[in-house]
C-alpha cells in the first residue's frame, strides 16, 4: 500500500498542496506570523508524523524540488539588476550599510549564542540566518552548520523582521527611506521585504536590492569571521 511513497510524486504533490494551503491561510488572515512557508512546513511535518512516513520517502520528491535552489539563487541577480540605477545613486551608503549589517549579524549571533550556551554546531547554523534561504543554506554547509536549522532560523528571523520593523524603526529613529529599506533587507531578507514594500516604494526597492548583496557579503565574511571568533 505504501508503494506509492517510493515515487517522487508523493513528496512533490504533498509540497505543492501544503504550500497552496499555506498561501490560502496567509491571505485569509493577512498576518505575518501565518507565513505561507512556515505553515506548509508544519503541515508536511504533521502529515509525515501522523501517517508515520519517513523523511526519506518524502525526500525522493523533495530532492527534485531542492534541485531548484541553484537556479533560484542565480535568479536573485534579476532584482539587483532591476534596481541598478537606485543602487548606483546610493552605492556607498548601500555597500557600507549592508557590510555593517552583515558584520553585526555574524559577530552578534556568535556572541549571543555563546551567552545562551548554544553548541558550536547550532551557533554555526544560526550565523547565516539573516540572508536569503538558498544562500543561507550554502553558507551553513560551508561553516559547519546544519542547513535545516538554518532554514528554520531564517524563517523565524524573517517573521520577526516583518512584524517588528515598523516599531523598531520608530523607537530607534530610523527615518530615512533608504536606511529603512536596507535595514529591513539586511536583517530579515525576503520576508522582511514584504513589509518594506508596504511601507513605501523606495523602502521596498532598497530592501529587495539588499537581499542578494547581503547574501554575497555574508558568503565572503562568514568563513573568515567565524574562524576568528568561534
Amino acid at each position: 500500500m505504501k508503494d506509492f511513497l517510493i515515487t517522487p510524486l508523493f513528496g512533490i504533490v504533498l509540497s505543492i498542496v501544503a504550500f497552496e494551503v499555506g498561501i490560502f491561510i496567509n491571505k485569509k488572515t493577512g498576518l505575518a506570523v501565518c507565513n505561507a512557508f512556515l505553515i506548509s512546513i508544519l503541515l508536511i511535518i504533521g502529515f509525515l508524523t501522523v501517517f508515520q512516513i519517513s523523511q526519506q520517502s518524502f525526500n525522493i520528491g523533495g530532492d527534485i524540488i531542492s534541485f531548484f535552489l541553484g537556479p533560484a539563487t542565480v535568479i536573485l541577480a534579476v532584482p539587483i539588476y532591476k534596481q541598478l540605477t537606485l543602487l548606483k545613486a546610493n552605492l556607498l551608503p548601500v555597500l557600507v550599510g549592508i557590510t555593517a549589517g552583515c558584520v553585526t549579524a555574524i559577530t552578534s549571533i556568535i556572541g549571543f549564542s555563546k551567552l545562551f550556551k548554544l553548541q558550536a554546531v547550532l551557533c554555526a547554523s544560526l550565523v547565516p540566518k539573516s540572508v536569503t534561504t538558498p544562500i543561507g543554506i550554502e553558507v551553513s554547509k560551508e561553516i559547519g552548520g546544519i542547513p535545516a536549522i538554518t532554514v528554520a532560523a531564517i524563517i523565524i528571523t524573517g517573521i520577526v523582521g516583518a512584524v517588528f520593523a515598523p516599531i523598531v524603526c520608530r523607537i530607534f529613529h530610523i527615518k530615512d527611506k533608504v536606511a529603512v529599506g536596507i535595514a529591513i533587507g539586511a536583517s530579515s531578507h525576503a520576508i522582511g521585504t514584504t513589509k518594506a514594500l508596504e511601507l513605501g516604494e523606495t523602502e521596498g526597492a532598497m530592501s529587495g536590492l539588499t537581499i542578494g548583496i547581503a547574501g554575497l557579503i555574508t558568503v565572503l565574511l562568514a568563513p573568515i569571521l567565524i574562524k576568528w571568533l568561534l
Binding site: G97, A100, I109, C169, I174, I182, A183
Partner: peptide, 17 residues
Amino acid sequence: VCFITTVLIMVVTGHTI
C-alpha cells in the same frame, strides 16, 4: 538569539546609512 540579533542588525544598519 534570532529576535535580539535581528533588531540589532536593523538598528546598526539603519543608523550607519
